[in-house]
Write a protein that binds this DNA or RNA. Structure first.
Lengths: 345, 345
DNA sequence: TTGTAAGCGTTATCAC
DNA sequence: GTGATAACGCTTACAA
């Protein structure tokens, strides 16, 4: 099996220096000055031997694992169609690579208030946490806060003092609904992206409501349904809405995935989009552009969200200002055919 | 900041035993028998102190990191719409949780023949590797093979001796095409899911070809295009096919994602599905069922694939038979409206 | 059955 | 500038 492990001692021997020096050189320690000659020798020796420091030993001694944890709060059934995960990974890993950090990923069920990720922290397996889909009333989070553990939320949460990166869900939803209003729609239904235990759907619903009020349209609970992340939930809620007999000519669905499900229910009823019902989604997933009809939606910069969140976390880890910051990224409406306005693909 | 760390010494002290005993008890070592009384004391002490072993120390001493690496070979632009990733994670983490293992994830670009993941191995950060999207001519893989490093492929590769979990791509593709043939189609186009440097598209194309031959239909290269994982590639290749003037009444697209792109191109031309062109996809992504029209496709058991792959890896790690095994999972055709046969939703 | 002691491969604190 | 020498917290022969 595998080759005899190369240790820093081997490198030291070959370079004719001590292990200390090897460590100093390879970690590029600033405080102390090492002669360029020695430096060169060490680097070459390491290269020649193909030396790769043992991560465990490094972690034990330095008290830094060089790993961050990405915790996704999701329900099992909603994972399969969660189109965000790949994009989040994309943005995250990009930053991780830059800093030579690793990513441990885990999915925890919101119900199991999981101490699951606390375990990672307690075992010192990770130096910091990125939490996607933070939930109200998560005890573990409180614990992290008390410990002052480096944490960045992808999303937001009131009453906690963590850094976060998010969008202005309320404004974004308002923008989408205002668009429908401007097209002349008066009876606009709404299906949220998730249950109200999450903050995003609550904010998006608030945005919907505000936009209606701004337009002098009464808010009617009968036209509102709660989605649950999945295509199925969109299908069901829309079917339910259609069966309710409440008339409406447009719908704002606060998630493209849920919207695709809703779309399916509409078409199955023999109704046309946008002729009978105009549809606006939220997220601008890649599929939105290729849906039939192409879906007008709010563009959510997921990759950038992930990128900023990880950059923020790295900054904290590097000893940057612990100052808590909240970043809100811009969104914009992408107009396609599903609401019947100017057509773009 | 954080609480004073609890070490195994603390637990030992509280329980009135030595650190050895603590380790023995907590790791549930089989060989040696510890009195239930002692065991109880240790467990309680650990509980009371909230003891969590330091992962780095554990790894250093035991030479096991308790982490497996999931390496996704993907091109940056294809990640965002890669609907497999969430499902793979789902299956994987499920198994990982059972064995109290962690998952480090990384995405490497196929071009960068990345030694990227070798780094993880060399640093002993991971105990084993799950490789999704293995590619022909990956030097790093050869290196792993030489080292006998525990590795399981999600997919397949000739000329290497790794365990693998996959489906019979050729047979599955054949099944899809045979379905089109049975519906009376004679001119059937094909768009692969990926370039031919991957094995799956090559096998699926072979299945397409065989099915045609079985039906006495000549294989015509003019009707074949190569997709590249993405919606865009599907759109482009189908547009190209339509523009070529080669007549065809059906298309087998070896990936649902690519098929959704292709679908968009067809509809945009004013052609109807399945009336003008029947469409069969591959993968059975959640969205397939909710597409317009719903997409007939080959069901790929991704979650199960991931589950079996990780179980296989864990088995190797636990010292199970190093015997190399190749598992092929079953697929089946899911018939929906896009090919005009019996309609299901 | 339990304890002693020797690593595991680094980093970090001091002297030199 | 560079090199001994402790930690770091755990596992694991080997003794007892």
């Amino acid at each position: 099996m595998s080759a005899k492990r190369v240790t820093s001692q081997d490198v030291a021997d070959l370079a004719g220096v001590s292990r200390t020096t090897v460590s100093l050189v390879l970690n590029d320690v600033q405080d102390i000055k090492i002669s360029p000659a020695t430096k060169q020798k060490v680097v070459e020796a390491a290269q020649e031997l193909g030396y790769v420091p043992d991560a465990a030993a490094q972690a034990l001694a330095s008290r830094r694992a060089q790993i961050v944890g990405l915790i996704l709060t999701r329900q099992p059934h909603q994972i399969a169609s969660d189109a965000f995960i790949p994009q989040i990974l994309d943005g995250l890993l990009d930053v991780m690579h830059q800093y030579d950090m690793r990513l441990i990923i885990d999915i925890v069920e919101p119900e199991h208030q999981s101490e699951a990720y606390l375990q990672l922290v307690r075992a010192k397996r990770i130096d910091g946490i990125l939490l996607s889909g933070p939930r109200l009333g998560d005890h573990a989070l409180k614990s992290l806060e008390d410990d002052g553990f480096p944490t960045v939320l992808i999303g937001q949460l009131p009453d906690v003092n963590f850094c976060s990166v998010d969008i202005d869900n309320r404004a974004a939803a308002g923008m989408a609904v205002a668009h429908l209003v401007n097209l002349g729609h008066q009876r606009i239904a709404c299906i949220t992206n998730a249950p109200k235990t999450y903050t995003a759907p609550v904010d998006r619903l608030a945005g919907y409501r505000l936009a209606l009020e701004d337009a002098g349209i009464a808010y009617r609970p009968e036209l509102v349904r709660f989605g649950n992340f999945t295509l199925e939930s969109g299908y069901e809620q829309m079917a339910n809405l259609l069966a309710s007999g409440e008339p409406f000519t447009a719908a704002f669905v606060a998630s493209d995935t849920v919207a695709m499900g809703a779309k399916s229910a509409i078409l199955e009823k023999g109704l046309r989009i946008p002729d009978d019902i105009a549809l606006v989604g939220f997220d601008d997933l890649p599929i939105a552009k290729f849906a039939e009809p192409p879906l007008t939606t709010v563009h959510l910069p997921v990759i950038e969200l992930a990128r900023q969140a990880s950059a923020m976390l790295i900054n904290i880890l590097k000893g940057g200002s612990q100052a808590c910051r909240h970043i809100l990224l811009d969104t914009h409406l992408v107009i396609r055919r599903s609401c019947g306005a100017t057509h773009n693909r």
